[in-house]
Write a protein that binds this DNA or RNA. Structure first.
Lengths: 241, 241
DNA sequence: AACTATTGTCGCAACCCTGTAACATTGGGG
DNA sequence: CCCCAATGTTACAGGGTTGCGACAATAGTT
């Protein structure tokens, strides 16, 4: 039995929403991790506040689920520090508060939590809240299809259609288009596109973006439809509605 | 070739959904057992917490219905232990709590129950909740056959047909196809497929999925019909509607 | 025990994708 | 109208991903 090759499978879903779960009850955290993973989220879990901060800065999550009562740095402190760090300041936070802790709830929201859930809650309810936040923040991460102009992108089926016709695009073109569609109309510089689509650590020629823009344009080309990709001279590109 | 009679192994290959009902009120348990059996579920009943744990590990059920107030080990303890055991950690649990037992409800959900019902409840309501969980966990367990495109999968008869013709597929191909058919159109990464079809703790080479995809393709191949298995480069596979 | 079905891995070839360079074209300012 | 910078377009080599046949190990059957 070759039980060797340690294939990192958990983080393989590269473009799934990243959750950070800070919860020190093993039973609950395990259950939630299972449920969220099952829903297609990419979850990291820690029972410890300090470690949570580390994980959060190390790889910024899309959403933090934060228990009020945790070991190490307290929930409220974690919340504050997340808000203070520029990197994580904008990351939505859902707080899990103790039963009658009205004060906590208040302070939690004061501290910058986006939403809160009072224990006990049903996992289903938390799932729903998370989905709601995702829908608000970035629709594609919630598994909802995005629509910009006459183009529709279904992230779950990994499919793109334009006026009913299914388009055929390669991996990079797909990611590029999705990135554009998440912020319709917004102009991105080549550098921003490299960061957002290729990843922060890419050592790629800026001009390469041009080529992929070209490929994307060709891929979404349809008889009698205008090219929605706009070139903004000396600034970058954008996707028009 | 056709594996008709399967030895009771993990419960994943059985025909009907297996329920474990832990309830010490004879009248209620008898009623529920009758109703569920009538609905096609395979029910085992015990009034005792310890025995429930035994039964659960002995033959892992698909869903546990757990009364809060039972003899032997208490409901919450049963809940915890089920969660602790890797085998049963992910089995959904529906708790039945007494009316005024708010605290119980609290701890019950803390402990990882998926849902709860407050006594008194109508059997119909419980039926509905169970069905909902089943639909979420594994649609095929709800009993109805699934239909995607021209392929029909009957989980009860353990048979797959395409355009009237019966297909012959091996165990793994069957599970793979069923997994796909439960989420038509959705793209799964190789890792997700391994988790969903092979099980969470399998140490299997990612590329192995390719081979089984190929075997599945070959198995469902029919003259004049297009291959419904779509390859999504650098993302995974999906089953087209 | 012999046999068959099934399964997980490899290796190779085919194919797709990608980054880069090189050249063509465009646009705006003087 | 000319020039230069920015962008469009094409070609291509190299790398990565997938399809597919083969094979050994295992499990189940007769």
């Amino acid at each position: 039995m070759p039980t060797e090759t340690e294939t990192p499978r958990k983080g393989k879903h590269l473009h799934a929403a990243k959750l950070l779960l800070v919860e020190d009850d093993p039973a609950l955290s395990e259950l939630l991790e299972y449920r969220f993973t099952n829903e297609g989220y990419q979850v990291r879990t820690t029972p410890d506040g300090d470690e949570a901060l580390l994980l959060a800065t190390e790889d910024v999550p899309d959403l933090v689920i934060l228990d009020w009562m945790i070991e190490g740095t307290s929930g409220i402190e974690v919340c504050r520090r997340l808000r203070r760090d520029k990197q994580t300041a904008h990351v939505p936070i859902i707080m899990l508060t103790a039963r009658e802790a009205e004060d906590d709830r208040v302070r939690g929201l004061d501290t910058g939590a986006d939403d809160y859930l009072t224990k006990p809650f049903s996992p289903r309810e938390l799932l729903a809240r998370v989905a709601a936040v995702m829908r608000r923040i970035r629709p594609a991460l919630a598994g909802e299809s995005i629509e910009v102009g006459d183009i529709t992108l279904d992230p779950v089926a990994h499919k793109v259609t334009r006026r009913g016709r299914t388009l055929q695009l390669g991996p990079t073109e797909y990611r590029l288009l999705k990135f554009f569609m998440e912020s319709p109309g917004r102009v991105f510089s080549r550098g921003q596109l490299l960061d957002g689509v290729w990843g922060t650590e890419s050592e790629i020629e800026l001009r390469t973006v041009d080529v992929h823009i070209r490929r994307l344009r060709k891929a979404i080309e349809i008889e009698g439809a205008k090219d929605p990709v706009r070139t903004v001279r000396s600034a970058g590109y954008s996707l028009e509605a």
